[in-house]
Design a protein around this nucleic acid. Structure first.
Lengths: 179, 179
DNA sequence: TTTGTTGTTTAAAACATCTTGAACACCCGA
DNA sequence: TCGGGTGTTCAAGATGTTTTAAACAACAAA
């Protein structure tokens, strides 16, 4: 987990951006990285959100010092997750991007997919383990009980994530949603 | 996020362990990796838990095919987090390890530390950004409002994690806790 | 003290992940 | 059809993380 230039000196200062914008984009980048996404996903979304205007690929490259390829991949992800919209302004031939306000959509969306895949596989494997342990000689009742506890743990974990994603359903679209 | 040998073939089969034990340890390893820890933290804890007996460093090395150094570091982490206890059986000169049952302690403990550090830094940086943006010429009221929304978002995030860690306080110690 | 066993530390290797930059594809207008 | 600007892909490079293996420290028994 990385820090950012203003406070920690870990990153090169982002020269082309006013300091306050760099602070905001880097802060969002750090938060999003904490959740297992890429730092630059957060930085791109944050810049679009804070500017509140459509920006094209070149502008994003320059502002955030990313390569063309990186911007292409990142914007595609953000678009897939539904937190950035791609628009073609009449006066321009280039695609522009605008931020959707449902920031938490991103987190909950991918979090759900990830945990869904993982937990279901874990559950089937623990089911298999229990069956195999039962068939094996000399497996005590206590051991089977411990496997069962882990199986229930997997179920509980799914539940916990569900509660979390429900809690995080708020977004930055309306002040009233926030506290 | 990696899979494990039985189902996905991504890992070498763990030869020295019965298949069902490998399934259990790898499953727990995957779950724990999902939460941002090391896969082997989960594997070591799971083996100790499922065996329900003290094991020494060498046994852990052999069973899970880890190096001496890795086991040393992993058990130290688990001990620090309070989910493994170090005991010295009278008949042996080597340290042995036993699993504590509060599995969720590990997740909530480190999760809290991580989010605490992160969110507080993010908040101060967003505060700074707001101040700087206010001082800068030509910053619109709307822009300041957007920064404020992000600041509130940071606060909300802290709240959400709090709720999650409360929810996850259950453990595998007692069946009644699970569902 | 010497020897053997166990535990810890750490630099480097192995591994995984992210970013870049060049090649290519696409789309318009001339 | 050509040329210029734009967008995408992907192999290679850069970066970050985890594991290993060797050196060392601590300790106990002989």
């Amino acid at each position: 987990m990385k820090g950012y230039s203003y406070r920690t000196g870990e990153h090169e200062p982002t020269t082309s951006l006013p300091l306050w914008e760099a602070l905001v984009t880097d802060a969002v980048g750090d938060v999003i990285e904490f959740w297992g996404f890429k730092r630059n996903h957060g930085r791109v979304w944050a810049l679009l959100y804070i500017r509140d205007q459509a920006m094209n690929s070149r502008q994003l490259c320059d502002s955030l010092e990313l390569s063309k390829g990186a911007v292409s991949m990142i914007t595609r992800d953000l678009e897939d997750w539904g937190i950035v919209k791609r628009v073609r302004p009449p006066e321009s031939s280039a695609w522009h991007f605008v931020a959707e306000v449902e920031f938490m959509k991103m987190i909950t969306h991918v979090l759900k997919r990830r945990e869904g895949k993982l937990i279901s596989r874990v559950q089937t494997d623990l089911d298999d383990a229990r069956r195999l342990a039962e068939e094996a000689d000399g497996t005590s009742e206590e051991t089977l009980e411990r496997i069962d506890r882990m199986r229930r743990l997997a179920g509980m974990m799914r539940q916990a994530i569900g509660i979390f994603t429900k809690t995080a359903r708020f977004d930055v679209s309306d002040t009233r949603d926030l506290l």
